[in-house]
């Protein structure tokens, strides 16, 4: 589970577990997959894991859902078990099930990149990725790019250059710019603009996003 102290709010999953009574969520169709008999006895751990199971190997198919399924997500270097319906997007799983609310859902259609996370180091829109498609991959969120208490150079540069106003696009912007510097440590301003071409900022903070990222590239270079 995610590390949270007891006074932190409960995730929907914990709520669902905690609550009882007639209105509880139906657990119908928990797992229809071959080789799985009871909820929680087996975890979807990625293609490699399930293809090793006998029956799945024979048919090459395993079915999940439509009800909640326990899966293991590898987020920010830690394994988390979440119980989700297959329709759950990665953004929803992060925010609701894992309480990692730094990732924002803005357009919910892949148009604004407010939900940007890294999937094996590649920036993607987590609102358009099924959480189950992240199984077996390394997910990095805004919560996971700093080194302990030390902010990522892009985060530090965003603060230094005031590259934010309301801050709602900021996690997505930071993720896009950090990914850019990861693959291109010496970008031009045009490179930065292209890297955040899908990131919408309604406050209009772009000029400082460009400046901050170029500055962060400088500090990365000197490091």
């Amino acid at each position: 589970m995610s590390e949270r102290s007891k006074d932190q709010p409960m995730s929907a999953e914990e709520q669902a577990k905690a609550s009882s009574g007639r209105n509880g969520i139906s657990r119908r169709g928990f797992l229809k997959g071959a080789g799985l008999t009871a909820a929680g006895t087996a975890l979807l751990e990625g293609v490699q894991a399930f293809s090793s199971e006998t029956e799945a190997k024979e048919t090459g198919v395993r079915e999940f859902g439509p009800g909640p399924v326990p899966v293991r997500l590898h987020v920010n270097g830690t394994e988390h078990t979440v119980t989700i319906e297959p329709r759950t997007t990665l953004a929803e799983a992060l925010r609701i099930n894992l309480g990692m609310t730094g990732t924002k859902i803005v357009c919910d259609r892949g148009s604004c990149s407010g939900c940007t996370v890294l999937l094996d180091k590649v920036p993607v829109n987590s609102c358009m990725v099924l959480a189950m498609d992240a199984v077996g991959h390394h997910v990095t969120t805004i919560e996971g790019i700093s080194q302990g208490s030390e902010p990522h150079p892009v985060q530090a540069a965003f603060v230094k250059h005031d590259a934010m106003q309301c801050g709602y696009c900021t996690p997505g912007m930071v993720m896009s710019c950090a990914a850019l510097l990861d693959r291109n440590p010496h970008p031009t301003e045009q490179d930065v603009r292209q890297a955040v071409a899908g990131n919408l900022c309604r406050c209009g903070t772009y000029p400082k996003v460009f400046a901050a990222t170029l500055d962060a590239a400088g500090s990365t270079r000197n490091a």
Partner: peptide, 15 residues
């Protein structure tokens, strides 16, 4: 989004 069954496939023939 409606709920659905997700059939994970590892081969073309399986799909």
């Amino acid at each position: 989004m409606n709920s659905f069954v997700l059939a994970e496939c590892t081969s073309v023939s399986a799909a």
